[in-house]
């Protein structure tokens, strides 16, 4: 179990939250995460979040689906048990008739793979304990969290910036996992 000491700033307005993020990062303090009940424009950019690699996962899953579609149909219809359906060739020339199934399997694998990967990466799999930092985050407030252990003694700066940018509440929190 990973323990994390977090400093939480509770905001009411997205603009103030972004302001806080910008000012913190200007001081060289990395923001651990932000929790918002709705998408906030430009927040990801200001937080310096790297682009998701989910798309790479999607491509790999899709390629897997593409290959399994082809292998499935070639294996069955060409190698294992060649069948003559409607006078169509039973060699690789039957490729056009394989397109729909290959297409469907590509989509299926991509969708499932991406969904599972997303849930895995965002810790929303079954059995994972939920971790609500502040009960108000499920309502209309926005949270800005900073990892206290990674600060080199400038915790006062963080508290000050949070306060000055308009956080309505500032708390310490120990995250248990």
């Amino acid at each position: 179990m990973l323990r994390k000491n977090l400093i939480i700033g509770v905001y009411k307005e997205p603009d103030k939250l972004i302001d806080g993020v910008i000012k913190l990062r200007k001081q060289g303090i990395e923001v651990f995460d932000c929790f918002t009940p709705f998408p906030v424009h430009n927040l990801d950019r200001e937080m310096g979040i790297k682009r998701t690699r989910l798309t790479v996962g999607a491509f790999i899953c899709g390629s897997l689906g593409f290959l399994s579609g082809l292998v499935l149909q070639f294996g069955m219809m060409v190698f294992d048990w060649p069948m003559n359906i409607g006078g169509k060739p039973d060699s690789y020339l039957m490729l056009p008739s394989m397109v729909p199934v290959t297409f469907e399997l590509t989509i299926l694998f991509t969708a499932f793979g991406m969904g599972i990967l997303f849930f895995y990466k965002s810790r929303m799999l079954h059995g994972v304990r939920e971790d609500i930092l502040d009960i108000r985050q499920t309502d209309d407030t926005l949270l800005l969290t900073v990892e206290a252990d990674k600060l080199n003694g400038n915790k006062q700066d963080v508290l000050e910036i949070l306060k000055n940018t308009g956080a309505i509440d500032i708390r310490d929190h120990i995250r248990q996992h």
Binding site: G86, G87, K88, P96, S97, V99, P100
Partner: peptide, 12 residues
């Protein structure tokens, strides 16, 4: 393209 080709190719 495939919709046009596949149906015509299959129905023959």
């Amino acid at each position: 393209w495939l919709s046009q080709f596949l149906l015509i190719w299959y129905a023959n």
